[in-house]
């Protein structure tokens, strides 16, 4: 019965204390890395839920495979074989080129490694915060995923790992408003930084000089500066160039090559080609 007339004296003070605690937590979380342990432990506890939530999608694709007809499978098989043959043919050429490249690099005295080690991971869930662009993947420290590693799909760079626990990792996409990636134009060699702006099909390159040699459809690759992303992975294609005459800058919009909103299989790139100093 006392539930009906319940008013505790301490509630206000307790609430005030908790509000202060929240504000302090947010401050510390934004400025420092100390709370990473807390985060990774809570998300470890949450990882069964994440698996549970991604279960319908997994069962769906499993059932799809199970139920797809014999003929479809045969067709797919022959298509894949054809693709495999083409890739093999290209690979032969690649090996020659690779050998040549290594030789040339040796001659130049540069020690950059060509092959990066990768970990194959699958998408678990997309974080449901409309302001952020984060995805969860199903590999964690047990599989060798570390903080800051680059994540790519078959088309280009997707993002980098920002939180990791034993079994899962959170990846920030290059289109997140808080993310920036150092890039280089293949054609002209101009270096710049591509910022996310919150929409999955756009990256912004700000403050490029108006004289910079940029055209629509130019390809952008990672420059490897800063040491986070390995160099020379494709990032985006230029889709529009706007001249800001009053300030003498151009702002460039580019479309990410990676399928940020539809890739289910991703690769975590392990080595940082000798540039990393972390």
């Amino acid at each position: 019965m006392n539930q009906l007339h319940y008013r505790e004296q301490g509630t206000s003070i307790r609430t005030l204390f908790l509000v202060g605690l929240c504000i302090a937590l947010m401050f510390v979380d934004q400025r420092f890395n100390h709370l990473e342990v807390v985060r990774s432990n809570i998300s470890l506890v949450l990882s069964p839920i994440r698996y549970l939530v991604s279960l319908p999608a997994i069962t769906g694709s499993w059932a799809n495979e199970w139920l797809s007809s014999h003929i479809e499978l045969l067709n797919e098989n022959s298509a894949l074989k054809a693709k495999g043959r083409i890739l093999n043919a290209r690979l032969q050429k690649m090996q020659v080129l690779k050998a040549e490249n290594t030789r040339l690099r040796n001659m130049l005295g540069s020690s950059r490694k060509l092959a990066d080690q990768v970990i194959v991971a699958e998408l678990l869930s997309v974080d449901q915060n409309p302001y952020r662009q984060l995805i969860e993947i199903n590999k964690g420290t047990f599989d060798g995923v570390e903080l800051g590693l680059a994540v790519i799909d078959d088309f280009g760079v997707m993002g980098q790992v920002i939180h990791v626990n034993q079994y899962t990792a959170t990846t920030i996409l290059i289109s997140d408003p808080e993310h920036a990636i150092p890039v280089q134009f293949i054609r002209s060699g101009t270096r710049s930084v591509a910022f996310g702006n919150g929409s999955v099909d756009q990256l912004e390159l700000r403050y490029l000089p108006a004289t910079a040699d940029i055209k629509v459809n130019d390809q952008l690759v990672t420059s490897g500066l800063g040491g986070r992303f390995p160099a020379d992975y494709p990032v985006a294609t230029v889709i529009s160039i706007t001249k800001d005459l009053t300030h003498g800058f151009v702002s460039v919009l580019a479309k990410p090559l990676a399928r940020l909103d539809s890739s289910r299989e991703v690769l975590v790139v392990k080595s940082n080609n000798g540039l990393a100093a972390e």
């Binding site: 908790l18 605690l21 929240c22 937590l25 974080d127 449901q128 915060n129 952020r132």
Partner: peptide
């Protein structure tokens, strides 16, 4: 906050 990748304390507040 952990599950949504927001600042720790944001939803809590």
């Amino acid at each position: 906050d952990t599950s949504q990748g927001t600042l720790l304390g944001q939803h809590a507040l």
